[in-house]
Amino acid sequence: MKKYEFLEHTADVKFIAYGKDLRKLMINSAKALKKVIYNKRVKKREEKKIKIKGKDLENMVYLFLEEFLFLLDGKNFLFSKIKEIEVDEKNFSIKATILGDSSKRYDIQSDVKAITYNEMYVRKEGKLWISQVVLDV
């Protein structure tokens, strides 16, 4: 099964991520974001914790992905992989432990300025969870 795919957008980057449940959907959405920022391997030298609480599904995805931008700009931390993740579907909250490395060691390919709500949706189609996200680059 496809984890994510990129769609056409004149100015920005648009992707759709898939997952058999919300947990997997969050992991694959983060993978799509990482692919845009840096599409090669990142070493797992450091560990960071993420904790967010959203208001609805879209807001939860927005806040979750925004954490990675904050870590990159604010802490020079480039993420490699999600080690552990818990998604509370009722409260729209996520707790995760992520692995990565100092961003200064890498030739990062693009500056994702923000996650946007433009054309964003998170929904279940049949048995599959789908998220669509436009990134401001």
Binding site: D73, D111, V137
Partner: peptide, 19 residues
Amino acid sequence: ERAKKRGIGQMGTLGAGNH
């Protein structure tokens, strides 16, 4: 605070993309 933390280390930088 979050915005300040994102910006404080970036004064005097071009960034990427179309900059």
